[in-house]
Each structure stands twice: as structure tokens, then as C-alpha cells.
Design a binder for these strands. Structure first.
Length: 695
DNA sequence: GCGATCAGTT
DNA sequence: CACAACTGATCGC
């Protein structure tokens, strides 16, 4: 993730910018073709909050609100108040509004005018509704769009018992509120925080009510040059016929014959997948299978009858990407009918489980994950295909773009764009943040059809601080500890997964110039991450290092007592850091020799981050990918009112914008895929020239 | 030795 | 205790 942007909050209110974009391009929302732009003609306007802010505690949020109470006339994200008041963007960041100078003249600060103020009670919460003065605003979506969006929204996993609103109110339904926060400060209606409880107002403030949407638009206003979002740069889909693709292969390889197959769908016949593909019958049937696209209907939860020992588990439907032959993170289910390509979102055991050296179908993953897979799973390299962040590949006429998931190193989200124009986002495991809202892929595809969502913390109780806050806290506590024990020899110990949570120990190591050692297994994994300057702080000998990175399970008092025994002649004290999502409000335990500091640290989205993310995308359908029980088929239920509501399409139409530099930087490039030659052909990769378009 | 499964750990 | 993610033991091949 762009950690360099942590804490740098830019941005704000460019409603007009977005509005004009969407109003001019409302017709194009259905367009399935990529927008072709030239680098020197930035034709897109995007928006999204660049501000990063954690779903912080209620206390903090309220503090932020009151702090800004005086600033009543501006709509800003309350967490970014200080920045917002700055007239100039951070250095090095050209803001999109600066970029589109002509448009900037037309910016207007919207004034939030409280219409009604209802104090919510704990049981029956009413919303605080504010109406925005919309003078000069353009509607983002016409009523037809809005209506169809809401009426067609379905959710296979939605609670059927939840009554569907026949008659919808004019105002959008509000999310359930955290019980802790019932009192919405109406006087701070100028402050917008989409991630807090005040987002009631936020939504209303930002949202355009249906009534407002009907207002005629002034087409002369706020027209920004080429509202088209600088899309995926000229996407040249150089269709490579199977014949052509042979050119890239070694003519001596006997597979070539097999590759001379007229149609991509036949590719699965390729003998590179002996174990898996030999089973499926004759070629003819195989072709038919491949042609058939699996649907959730195909995958029926089996009866409770005991599965014979050795037979694989049945594959839950959420592992299959709707309308494709793709499977994400589903390696433990044996041969899945019709699945021809696999995706591995990241290298965590619960996602790669089942992936062994015997696996023999093409898998797509980030370069980092690929290195891990090569290191720990002796999987044949011909099946490993790399797709990097912000790169797009094409398989079977489906565009797949990788997005940084802000989870562990190498974790990706996958954005699928089908030839039909349908768009699907699979988040894998992820921690949603504001920066994601700047991603061009979302702006270029404002209507998301299906969202496969990591709902790990889909519970209001899960509300943890931003990672940067957690890291700051770790640093300050360590510093404090050092100051208290200046003359002591301190062995630092930090818990971590094999992959994940390294930001904590990395930051502490660099801040205090500690020498780091970790167990060989984790060290091998860390070496796969290609961390910058790793050789300057990583040591092979634990006796040379004063920061040991060990398994989280060892960060307990009894374990640390044992651990200390190993090094007691070298150190006087152990200071252990335990980064975990469960460390909220837990006080450090300081002992004479052993001290443990819990650091609230999560690599999954908090409840509010999830809510904001879903509201931002407003998909037609949400599918949870996280089982809530031991039963893999039972997954979380995403509140339908996060996306199935009347009103503006999505937060994509709201008052946020990315910085232009980030925007351009993240614009996906069609990847000149560095795939193995075999899979290149197997997957019917198209060769596409990347285009650099630096502003 | 490999892989699947389960129990246990923070 | 909540959880994700890991670790270790056992069992069958």
C-alpha cells in the first residue's frame, strides 16, 4: 500500500467535478470498453478521499468533531480537518483540482444546512438528516439509473426475512449504528466523516436526494475538460490466436502440438495438467465442460452424509467467480467442475490450503506470493503466473486487474471485467482504506455488479485503530520503555505471522536501529518480500540481534520466561510486542524482567471500514467469502442497506477525489505478462503494450 | 516423507 | 472469550 501517504490527508470537496463527470458520462456507465485516452489529455476526473483515517474510537471521533465545530461551512472529512484547512496540497502531490485548472474555478463549497434534527435513541434510531444546498450541482445518475440500480439489486445471501421496502423513503436508509454512539452531533453537520457514526448526516449531506436529482442540470457549469477518467490507457487487445502464440514457445517442446488448438476453451485439454485434467473424460466432454460456466447453482451444498475419507471437500459457491471459470483461494476442493484458472489472493495458510506440488492448473498471484509459493510449496513454476498491482491481464476475454489489498505483503484484490461488461471485485482478505477510493479502476467502472467481500470483522464490535496509529503507539511505548530502563540491556521480541504484521517490527527496528533476527522459516518468507534495505537490519544469528521476530503464539508470559532463559546472560529484560486485533484497551504488562505490550493491529477491515467500502462501491450484489461457522458454506451476511438503497449510485459520485499523481500512478496498465510460455498460451494471454503516461 | 485432519495456542 | 493464522500431533498411504 502507499504507506507513504499514511497520515497525509488531502482533499475534499469536488462535488462539481464529479458531478459533471457523471452527468456527462452517465450514458457510458454501461460501456464495457475501456476508455482510451492519451496521456497528455487527462480526461478523467476522479475523486475520492485521499485522506486516510482509521475507524478510530468514538472518543477520538467526537474530539475531531468538536474541534471543527467552528468550521461550519465546509464539508470535509472530519479526520482530515487539519489538512483540509490547508490551502495547498502536500508537497509533491498535485491535486486533481489543480490539474484541471479550468474546472477549479467552478468549485463551490457546499454548505450543509440542517433540515431536521432528530436525536437517536438506542433502540429506535432516527437519522439526522441534513440537506445540502445543491445549487449548481448536477445529478450523477438519472432516476432511471437509480431506480434500476436499486430494484435490481439482489443478494443471494441476503436475509430473506428482511422485508424489502416497497415504498422507499426519499432518504436513503441508514446503516445500523454502533450502540455506543447514539448521539449524533447535529451542530457539526459541516463535518463529514464517512467512517463514523456521523455518516448518517454525511450520507445525506453528500448524497443527492431523489428530489435533488431531478433538478435540471446546467450543462455549462462545472464542465471539466474531458470528464472521462483517464482510464486504462490505450488498451490494445492484441488478440493472439493460438497459432500465433506458438511463436513464443520452444518448438522443441512436445506440448506444442497440444497447443495447436483452435479455441481458447480447448486449452484445458493441455497435458500440462495431467493430474487434474486427465480425469475428465474424453476431449469432447472436456470441451463442453470448459464452455460451461459454473454458477452457484452448480455448486449445491451436499447433504450431511459423511464425506468418504480422502475425498475432497465440496467447494462453496463463493470460491467461484460468477460468470467465469475462475476460482479464488479454493485449492482444497479437488477437481472443481469447469474451473480452468485459479487465483491465490495471498500467502496465508487458510487461503493456500490444499495447494501442493501436485496441483496442475494455472494459478495467478502477485510476484511476492509467487516467490513464497516457489519457496514453500514446490509447485512447478509453469503453473505460476504473476500479476502485479495495478496491472491488467486478459484471460478468456476477461480483464483481470490486480489491486493492492492492504493486507499482508503480496495480498491482492482481483477486479474482473467480463466481456459482457459485468464487473466483479474479489477482495480476498483486505483492509479497506480511503486510498482505495481513489483507484481508477473503480472510477472507470462506476457500477460494480458483484462484490466478493472479506467479512472477517463484520460485527459492530470490531472497531480498531488505523495501522499507522497502532504503529505510532508501538513506537512511543517502546521509547518510553527505553527511557525508563536506560541502563538495561533489552531484548526486544515481536510477534508476527509468517507473513503479515511486519510493519510493527520493521518500524520499531528502524526507529531504534535494532538488529533483527527471526526463525529460519520466517526468515525465508521475509526474504521473499524483497524488503528494501533488509540486509542492513536482518541478522542470521540471534545472538547478534536485539529484536527477535517470533510467532505470535510465543508472545505469552510463560513462553517468554522460557525464551528469556536462552538469552539471560546477554540481556536484563525482555520487551515483547504483541500485535493483534484483540489488544484493544489492554494495558501493557510491565514486569521486572518480562514486559508485554499489546498493540491493537489488524490486517482486516473494521466494521466501519467495511461499511464505508461497500457504500462507496454500492455493488448490486455482495457475497461474503468468510464462513461464520465451521461449515464452509455458511458465510457472513452483509447488511443490505449498505448497498441496496434508493438514492445516489455510490460514493463514487460523492465529493472525494484522488490526487492526480496517485490517480495516474495507479491507473492500471495492461500487463506484458511474464508468464510461463505454456501458461501464456494456455490462458490465452493477450500481449499488450504498456503505455507510460507520466503527467 | 507427504498430505489430510484435528486439536491447541495467542 | 471473541479471531486469524499458525503449530504440532496423529494417521494413512
Amino acid at each position: 500500500m502507499a504507506t507513504s501517504n499514511v497520515g497525509k490527508i488531502r482533499l475534499k470537496n469536488l462535488n462539481e467535478l464529479q458531478n459533471s463527470y457523471f452527468s456527462e458520462n452517465s450514458n457510458s456507465t454501461s460501456a464495457t470498453e475501456c476508455v482510451v485516452i492519451s496521456p497528455e489529455t487527462p480526461n478523467k476526473v476522479a475523486k475520492a478521499s485521499r485522506g486516510r483515517r482509521a475507524a478510530t474510537t468514538v472518543k477520538k471521533k467526537r474530539g475531531a468533531n468538536s474541534e471543527n465545530a467552528e468550521n461550519t461551512k465546509k464539508i470535509v472529512a472530519n479526520t482530515t480537518v487539519k489538512r483540509v484547512n490547508k490551502k495547498e496540497p502536500p508537497q509533491g502531490q498535485m491535486r486533481i483540482d489543480s490539474f484541471f485548472k479550468s474546472a477549479a474555478k467552478n468549485y463551490k463549497v457546499e454548505v450543509a444546512v440542517p433540515m431536521t434534527t432528530l436525536t437517536s435513541s438506542s433502540k429506535n434510531k432516527k437519522k439526522t438528516t441534513n440537506r445540502v444546498r445543491q445549487k449548481g450541482r448536477k445529478r450523477l445518475f438519472d432516476d432511471e439509473t437509480t431506480t434500476s440500480t436499486s430494484t435490481t439489486a439482489t443478494n443471494a445471501f441476503s436475509d430473506e426475512t428482511e422485508p424489502k421496502m416497497k415504498l422507499r423513503t426519499r432518504f436513503r436508509k441508514q446503516p445500523l449504528r454502533n450502540a455506543k454512539i447514539n448521539n449524533v452531533k447535529t451542530e457539526s453537520n459541516d463535518v463529514i466523516d464517512l467512517c463514523t457514526d456521523e455518516d448518517d448526516q454525511t450520507l445525506t449531506v453528500l448524497g443527492i436526494t431523489p428530489k435533488k436529482c431531478l433538478e435540471p442540470l446546467d450543462t455549462n457549469e462545472n464542465i471539466i475538460q474531458e470528464p472521462l477518467i483517464p482510464s486504462q490507457v490505450d488498451i490494445q487487445k492484441a488478440t493472439i490466436s493460438p497459432k500465433k502464440s506458438l511463436e513464443f514457445l520452444d518448438p522443441n517442446e512436445n506440448i506444442i502440438e497440444e497447443l495447436m488448438i483452435p479455441s481458447p476453451v480447448v486449452i484445458e485439454k493441455n497435458p500440462i495438467s495431467p493430474k487434474r485434467t486427465l480425469e475428465p473424460l474424453n476431449a469432447h466432454e472436456n470441451i463442453m465442460q470448459v464452455l460451461k460456466i459454473p454458477s452457484p447453482v452448480d455448486i449445491v451444498k451436499p447433504t450431511n452424509s459423511r464425506r468418504p475419507r480422502g475425498s475432497p471437500k465440496p467447494c462453496p459457491p463463493y470460491k467461484i467467480v460468477e460468470g467465469t471459470n475462475f476460482c479464488v483461494d479454493g485449492f482444497q476442493f479437488g477437481v472443481i467442475p469447469n474451473v480452468t484458472h485459479y487465483f491465490l489472493s495471498h500467502y496465508h495458510a487458510d487461503h493456500y490450503i490444499g495447494l501442493t506440488r501436485k496441483f496442475s492448473l494455472p494459478i495467478y498471484m502477485s510476484p511476492t506470493t509467487a516467490r513464497l509459493v516457489r519457496t514453500f510449496i514446490k509447485l512447478d513454476d509453469i503453473y505460476i503466473n504473476e500479476i502485479d498491482v495495478d496491472q491488467t491481464i486478459i484471460i478468456d476475454n476477461i480483464e483481470i486487474t490486480a489491486i493492492d489489498a492492504n493486507h499482508c505483503p503480496g495480498a491482492l484484490m482481483f477486479f474482473f471485467k467480463l466481456s459482457s461488461g459485468q464487473t466483479i471485485l474479489h477482495t480476498g482478505d483486505f483492509r479497506a482504506n480511503f486510498e482505495m477510493e481513489s483507484l481508477p479502476i473503480f472510477w472507470n467502472n462506476p457500477q460494480l455488479d458483484v462484490l466478493y467481500l472479506d467479512t472477517t470483522y463484520l460485527n459492530k464490535n470490531y472497531d480498531f485503530s488505523h495501522q499507522s496509529e497502532s504503529i505510532d503507539r508501538a513506537v512511543s511505548l517502546v521509547k518510553e520503555f527505553h527511557n525508563k530502563h536506560k541502563d538495561k540491556r533489552i531484548l526486544h521480541v515481536c510477534g508476527a505471522y509468517v507473513i503479515g504484521k511486519e510493519k510493527i517490527w520493521l518500524t520499531v527496528a528502524k526507529e531504534f536501529k535494532l538488529k533483527v533476527w527471526t526463525e529460519p522459516h520466517r526468515r525465508a518468507a521475509i526474504d521473499c518480500l524483497h524488503l528494501p534495505d533488509a540486509e542492513t537490519y536482518l541478522y542470521d544469528d540471534p545472538n547478534e540481534a536485539n529484536l527477535h521476530v517470533i510467532g505470535l503464539g510465543q508472545i505469552s508470559y510463560p513462553s517468554l520466561v522460557q525464551y528469556f532463559d536462552l538469552y539471560q546472560d546477554k540481556y536484563d529484560m525482555i520487551l515483547a510486542l504483541r500485535p493483534s486485533g484483540w489488544e484493544k484497551n489492554r494495558k501493557p504488562s510491565y514486569g521486572k524482567r518480562i514486559s508485554v505490550i499489546g498493540i491493537e493491529y489488524s490486517e482486516h477491515s473494521s466494521y466501519k471500514e467495511l461499511e464505508r467500502f461497500v457504500r462507496f462501491l454500492k455493488p448490486r450484489k455482495v457475497i461474503s467469502t468468510v464462513p461464520t461457522e465451521r461449515d464452509l458454506f455458511v458465510t457472513g451476511k452483509v447488511p443490505t442497506n449498505w448497498y441496496d438503497y434508493e438514492g445516489p449510485a455510490s460514493m463514487l459520485s460523492k465529493a472525494f477525489q484522488p490526487s492526480i499523481t496517485t490517480f495516474l500512478k495507479n491507473t492500471p496498465q495492461i500487463q506484458k505478462s511474464k508468464m510461463s510460455s505454456i501458461c501464456k498460451s494456455v490462458a490465452t494471454q493477450y500481449k499488450i503494450n504498456s503505455i507510460n503516461h507520466n503527467p
